[in-house]
Amino acid sequence: MPEQILKIDKLNKYYGQHQVLYDISFEIQKGEVVALLGPSGSGKSTLIRCLNGLEQFQSGFLFFGGKQITPQEKNWPQLRQKIGMVFQSYDLFPNLSVLDNILLGPLKVQKRQRAEATAEALKLLQRVGLEKYAEVYPRQLSGGQKQRVAIVRALALHPELMLFDEVTASLDPEMVRGILEIIRELSERDNMTMIIVTHEMNFAAQIADRILFLEEGRILEQTPGKEFFQHAKTQRAREFLESMTF
């Protein structure tokens, strides 16, 4: 019996009078990888940001680990420890070293012991090939290295769900692969549950168990990964895929 991690039920979001998400409903089981695809402005990033409270939604429900989250949720700081997020612009804290970036959450939010948290942080850094960079400041890293640190920073809190918001979009092409490898390994080795917003179609095709195709704030179709790329259900999705391939 697969364990449901996240359920979204008729979520609506407005900016003022302007509605940007319409009746979004879907579920994610533990270990599942869902990719959100769709043209720019379709609401993918807004949706993923609603899932950890960085954007407020106006109506509908989230259920995370069986617990109901309403639009008025006050307890996001607690919930976010279980929902890791990585951003397009990395957003490491420039005033902290790599190690301190990673430790901020475990030490200050989760009040863990420094020795134990540090050991784990170093192990995670080693896993992404950056064990030598613990004492370095973010400005001394390349974009790809920053993004790897950002992934480690999120993992250090032991999240149950990871949100990736176009994490390769501002990287040099040769850096992209390394990041995607790390994400794939997270899925294959750790069975991490993930929601991925991406424009890397080949990556989505390989890694995603399911594709949600969004346009203008609506989910047009939900299709298993492989199937979506071979024969998407909607005409619009087929056009989109066509436009993405050269």
């Binding site: 607690q78 951003f87 804290f93 950002a150 920073r153």
Partner: peptide, 28 residues
């Protein structure tokens, strides 16, 4: 805003966000 988002995303509450993200960077 993106620094604030990053801070919130690791679970910092309002005061921790101020103490570890906003004040050190804002003071500079």
């Amino acid at each position: 805003q993106s620094q604030l988002d990053a801070g919130k995303a690791i679970g910092l509450n309002k005061f921790q966000l101020a103490r570890y993200v906003v004040f050190p960077q804002g003071f500079t």
